[in-house]
């Protein structure tokens, strides 16, 4: 009895989670420029229009650049921090994961406004660089979490064995340590990429007049004659963020699940 009630509630909540995404996917094929339901005529022509749209293309390229830059920085900083925390005991070790999580746990306007006030104060012009600085700051924690989780599950003795067998520090890293964390790095990088590609609140404070793809959507979804293109971009963005998350889920399941926090 209880089981059935909980089961039905589960299905209702799942529908609640997925119906809106389905609706927006259907609207991408709506031939009418209006948004009234039900959809009467179907078309795929908006997909061509969207892919040919210069604003969409520029925003897409900027988003890619920002995500690649932020992911690279997050990979470097996140894995260094993970190795430091895993290998050593030092003052302040316990606060590291807390500080790394702060940019995600504090309200978005706080991180955004803090960076904005700083860039303004030191006179740094808003650009791709400032976007990357903002994104990298909250992306570090996802790389860190994935790598730390993997290191915890692996044993340090295989590295000692490698050294005992005559490998030097570099060889041990190259042939023993790196293969252990490789998929965790990749999973973390994919999540960091998805996080950066999708971010909007911090970006509005650090982008100036540049438009990433989410900011392009934000600006254009209020313009009635852009609606069909916005619908198509919405579907493409959903697909683009689902693929890395699904991949990273598979990669990380070699030894657990990826975590955002």
């Amino acid at each position: 009895m209880a089981r059935r009630v909980v089961g039905i509630a589960t299905i209702v909540v799942l529908l609640f989670l997925y119906l809106p995404i389905l609706v927006i996917a259907l609207y991408a094929f709506n031939a009418d420029r209006g948004q009234s339901w039900p959809i009467t005529e179907w078309t795929t022509r908006w997909f061509g229009d969207a892919l040919a749209n210069e604003g969409v293309r520029d925003a897409f390229v900027l988003s890619l650049e920002a995500a690649v830059g932020a992911t690279a920085l997050a990979l470097l900083l996140g894995s260094l921090a993970a190795f430091a925390v895993h290998r050593f005991r030092f003052f302040g070790r316990e606060t590291i994961s807390f500080v790394l999580l702060l940019p995600l746990a504090l309200p978005g306007i706080v991180t955004g406004m803090a960076l904005n006030a700083t860039f303004n104060t030191i006179g740094l012009k808003f650009s791709l660089f400032t976007i990357i600085v903002g994104h990298a700051t909250f992306c570090v924690v996802v790389v860190y979490n994935n790598v730390v989780a993997r290191l915890r599950r692996s044993s340090h003795s295989i590295e000692e064995a490698s050294m005992d067998l005559g490998a030097d520090t570099w060889q041990t890293f190259r042939y023993v340590t790196f293969p252990v964390v490789r998929t965790a790095l990749l999973a973390g990088a994919l999540l960091a990429f998805a996080l950066s590609f999708d971010e909007v609140i911090v970006t509005t404070f650090t982008a100036g007049t540049d438009q990433t793809l989410p900011i392009w959507i934000l600006t254009n979804l209020r313009l009635p004659n852009q609606r069909p293109i916005v619908n198509v971009v919405a579907v493409l963005v959903i697909l683009l963020s689902a693929i890395p998350v699904w991949l990273s889920q598979r990669l990380a399941s070699e030894g657990g699940t990826p975590t955002r926090h």
Binding site: P20, A194, V200, I217, I238, V245, W246
Partner: peptide, 19 residues
């Protein structure tokens, strides 16, 4: 199924509700 919406575009999901 729970994880995917968490990671899929925030803005698109708000937009979907607006529609």
């Amino acid at each position: 199924l729970v994880l995917l919406p968490l990671w899929s575009s925030y803005l698109v999901r708000v937009y979907a509700w607006r529609v």
